[in-house]
Design a protein around this nucleic acid. Structure first.
Length: 476
RNA sequence: GGCGACGUAGCCAAGUGGUAAGGCAGAGCUCUGCAAAAGCUCCAUUCGGCAGUUCGAAUCUGCCCGUCGCCUCCA
């Protein structure tokens, strides 16, 4: 196997991937904030990291995959207030739906799914350290990070603090020392959920600090850094920039993460998908309408870093791709021996910055690979054969024996005397026999009428060299 | 205004100096009364435009046009 090369946002270059510790890869991916329903964009992002994780394991690494849950934020509190329930109920409802959607898409559950509210002590400890090292300060409404104390701020996203200050879109807050400073801890307002924090004051964590605290606790207690930190491209700024600013001053050996990996955003019917714009269809609704495996193949077709546009037309094409894969699988099941090479080609494609487009193309262009290679390649892409793949679940064609002595030529009177209810199969055979007779005397009109009659009773008929065959159609 | 990405056939999408992967859709042939299925074949002299570098460019350089994203909660 060749070297695995991955794009690193931190260095803006494709680099050879090398774990920091022998054979161990530690990944932290910024997970969901379940204050609202998950959408397809989330699916794309987590699906990519699922494929990356599978491939790293395929290469023999022991992977620890952490994906957090931001279970406390302004929106879930506000929604809970509007609906007269608790933020926990809001979060649990949406997160359960998200987990179910991920399962259906073939995205494996993370090794650890830490909830922010379960790490309050670690978060507070980190804030304490930041205050002691003068990277943070308290005001009357919260504790803020002093961006100016971290000279490298902006390095990940390619910005500098002067530029950011020039932008008029940064909200001015009288209490902050600098407009760029962001909240580590928000003091509780009346009726808001809060945690005690002596001596500063009860409140809740800001969004960014949880990732710094949890990744340190779970992956890098010694402050030497971990391997891969990931998320959607929209997290590069400010979220990941802020994480770096919080974590690195307290580390023995920065950087916080060796490799920063970001998935491209998804447009929904050519428009940005976002919570605030309300332009998205909940994942659960989409999964009702489309085969999850087709959605998976659709995502694999596009490079993970590219902006991708999801349309009804594109998912239709993906369905056809899925059918092709199923068909290929059935053929190979019958002839499992083949010419080796597919898996090596798929590995080569994935080595090249996880080029799933090419990997999928190799699978579709298969030239009789061994069954085990085909299965392995599919499993790397996270597409596993399930019940719907086996031919047994497709309606089978039933042959009809037509003896020479059968049937006597009849006329259309038989149409009204048919008993569909009592002996369905016998009736089908009867109609087919009659049609055959009509064909024999080249009465095409009659033959087509009979085919139509069968169709109306949910029977599909084809003529084959072995004679007519029929099966029940799903419809009607 | 600042930063960044992208623009390849009707659609989706690979390809980063050596002569355009793959899929969908479409077309033709075999077969066929019709229908279906299967097999075979075809489907970008050309990569947003214009210059330039080069023996050679979709790939490098410059300019222009267009689309989108980030800069604010966001995967």
């Amino acid at each position: 196997m060749g070297d695995l090369k991955l794009y690193n946002t931190r260095t803006r270059a494709v680099e050879r991937f090398e774990p920091m510790l022998p054979n161990v890869v530690r990944i932290y991916v910024c997970g969901l904030t379940p204050s609202a329903e998950a959408h397809l964009g989330h699916a794309r992002s987590f699906l990519f990291f699922d494929v990356l994780r599978r491939y790293l394991e395929h290469r023999g690494y022991a992977v620890t995959y952490v994906q957090n849950v931001t279970d406390i934020d302004d929106r879930s509190i506000a929604t809970a207030r509007d609906e007269g329930t608790t933020y926990r109920e809001i979060v649990q409802r949406h997160y359960a739906a998200f987990k179910d959607a991920m399962r259906r898409l073939g995205v494996r559950a993370p090794d650890v799914e830490p909830y922010a509210t379960a790490y309050i002590p670690q978060i507070q400890e980190m804030i304490r350290e930041l205050i002691e090292s003068e990277h943070a300060y308290a005001t009357q409404d919260g504790i803020y990070y002093a961006v100016k104390t971290f000279p490298r701020y902006g390095a990940l996203s390619g910005r500098n603090t002067e530029e950011l200050e020039a932008g008029a879109r940064v909200e001015v807050d009288e209490h902050k020392r600098d407009p760029l400073d962001f909240a580590l801890w928000k003091f509780a307002k009346p009726a808001e959920p809060s945690w005690e924090f002596e001596p500063y004051g009860a409140g809740r964590p800001g969004w960014h600090i949880e990732c710094s605290a949890m990744s340190r606790d779970l992956l890098d207690p010694q402050g030497l850094g971990f391997d891969i930190h990931g998320g959607g491209a929209d997290l590069i700024f400010p979220h990941h920039e802020n994480e770096i600013a919080q974590s690195e001053p307290l580390m023995a050996h920065p950087p916080m993460a060796n490799l920063w990996a970001h998935g491209g955003l998804l447009l929904f019917e050519s428009r940005k998908m976002s919570k605030s714009l309300g332009n998205f269809e909940p994942l659960t609704a989409l999964l009702e309408r489309h085969d999850p495996q087709a959605i998976r193949l659709l995502f694999l077709q596009t490079g993970y870093r590219k902006v991708m546009n999801f349309t009804e037309e594109s998912i239709g094409a993906a369905n056809s791709v899925l059918e092709r894969v199923k068909k290929a699988y059935r053929v190979l099941k019958a002839a499992p021996e083949g010419t080796a090479g597919l898996l090596a080609r798929v590995e080569a494609a994935l080595d090249d910055d996880m080029n799933t487009s090419v990997a999928l193309a190799e699978v579709l262009r298969y030239e009789s690979p061994p069954l085990h290679e085909f299965e392995r390649a599919l499993s790397l892409l996270g597409v596993a054969p399930n019940d719907s793949w086996s031919q047994e679940n497709e309606p089978k064609w039933t042959s009809v024996q037509l003896t020479d002595s059968l049937p006597p030529i009849t006329d259309s009177i038989s149409m009204v005397t048919r008993h569909w209810g009592s002996d369905f199969e016998g009736t089908v055979a009867e109609v087919i026999a009659e049609r055959n007779a009509a064909k024999a005397r080249k009465d095409w009109k009659k033959a087509d009428e009979l085919r139509q009659e069968l169709r109306e009773h949910g029977v599909e008929l084809i003529d084959t060299p072995e004679g007519p065959k029929w099966r029940k159609t799903g419809a009607r």
